[in-house]
């Protein structure tokens, strides 16, 4: 039997942030399994799939607070789950400190824009626009 060395890690003070991040990935992941697979089922599989999606279809769904809440939760959980995943990937593969820093700034900026834009659209959408 081979003994495995301890994983490489940078020497720094351990905060509980990484533990909360670990738990968040699993909890959000569990919710996202339901939210995202439900979303894919409705949008791509049932009743004609993507061929029937148009502005009127979106307006019909977002007339209901249920689907707005669904999509809002989906947006926030998916974006935060994905951003945290990409943060881990950047930490793993970007070797230089400055590369890591700028990639993460780019990541956080994009996440901020996506969350603000998406939230604004869900809250300010007007089904009677047409």
């Amino acid at each position: 039997m081979t003994v495995i060395e301890a994983p490489r890690s940078r020497a720094r003070s351990r905060t509980s942030f990484e533990m909360y991040s670990w738990i968040f990935m699993r909890m959000s992941g569990l919710l996202l399994v339901v939210l995202v697979l439900g979303h894919l089922l409705i949008m791509n599989v049932l009743d004609g799939g993507v061929q029937r999606v148009n502005w009127g279809f979106v307006a019909g769904r977002w007339a209901s607070p249920f689907w707005r809440t669904w999509d809002l939760m989906q947006l926030w959980l998916a974006e935060l789950h994905g951003t945290n995943g990409l943060r881990t990937v950047i930490n793993d593969y970007a070797v230089r400190d400055s590369t890591r820093f700028w990639l993460k700034m780019l990541l956080y900026t994009s996440a901020f824009l996506v969350l603000v834009l998406g939230t604004l659209v869900i809250f300010t959408f007007d089904p009677s626009m047409k």
């Binding site: 148009n54 979106v58 834009l117 659209v121 959408f125």
Partner: peptide, 13 residues
Amino acid sequence: HVLDTALVRVSPD
């Protein structure tokens, strides 16, 4: 996908 969906706020067309 968030960008393309945001277009619902621009115009139906």
